[in-house]
Amino acid sequence: MIGLIGIVTIFAMVFGGYLAAGGKLAIILKSLPFEMMMIGGAAIGAFLISNDMHAIKQTVKDITKVFKGPKWHHDDYKDLLCLLFELIRLAKQNPVAIEREIEAPEESEIFGKYPKIQADKEAVALIADTLRSASMNYDDPHQVEEVLEKRMETNLHSALHSSHALQTVADALPALGIVAAVLGVIKTMGSIDQPPEILGKMIGGALVGTFLGVFLAYGLVGPFAAKLRSVVEEDSHFYSLIREVLIANLHSHPANICIEVGRQNTPAHCRPQFSELEDALKSIRKDAA
């Protein structure tokens, strides 16, 4: 919602200010289809050249994140901590039982309590692989932490590709606007014998290209890239929390201490209160009794 408000504000302030200053939209509207064809078409073509099909599809899909915002919210972080508590406690009490949970998480009763997390393949794989490493005696916390860190860096780099692709387009748009403007000037010079009022409109139409390139770059595509990067980095905290909790578990801390480590490492605006989380964990203990 806030993204749509931002877009409306941009258009209202830019074109509202132009009209308030006595400008006329007729010349812009007349030139807009042709300038958009040149600038927008060239930008799309450059985007297609510089990305493979997977990246193109992913970028188109990721644009919705600008309006949807982060995937993970306060309740999701609380659910994640509860899920990890159940898994860690089970791993300490019954190592054989935990193997059944992590080998088939899609059939797991514990994972099934948290369907949103269960549906996220990377979160489930991260949890299962780390718990499996402990069961295989690959339990040096520092080694596991290094492996997880590299894995999450790789995933974050891949997730940020859409933002980088959009930012590349944003950086190119002003120059493409100049290209369109130069073509407009060339057209104008071919009609140099026309009256001044005709030439004025033609020059104005050519300058629409420069305006459009800069406007699209800094008013729309650039902010889209920045917002997308912000959302991806925000969501990455969810996976970092998994790492922190499971590494604490490898240090042989009690389950409740591991969960408190995770709670403390949760972003402030998503962090559940201690009493709130404790009530949720008490409910889990009561159900297990």
Rank of each mutant, 00 (worst) to 15 (best):
H253S: 10
I127E: 06
D193M: 10
H54V: 06
Q58P: 00
G213K: 06
V208Y: 07
S162H: 10
Q93W: 00
S50C: 00
I102Q: 06
L281W: 12
V185A: 10
H237Y: 12
L281F: 06
D62K: 02
A43H: 02
A104C: 09
A289N: 13
S252P: 05
I127F: 04
H142P: 01
H269F: 09
L48G: 06
Q93P: 00
P115V: 09
G262M: 05
K286V: 14
P115N: 10
P115D: 11
H251D: 12
N256A: 14
M189L: 15
S162A: 15
I10K: 00
L207M: 14
A288N: 13
K286G: 01
K116F: 11
D62S: 07
L25W: 01
G6F: 05
P254N: 04
V66W: 02
L84E: 15
E35T: 12
I178A: 12
D140R: 12
G177M: 05
K57P: 00
V232H: 09
I242Y: 00
Y77F: 15
K201A: 12
K113A: 14
T168H: 07
K150P: 01
S275K: 13
D79S: 12
F34G: 05
F47E: 04
K150N: 15
R100A: 15
D287T: 13
D120S: 07
L156F: 11
I186N: 07
F47P: 10
T59Q: 04
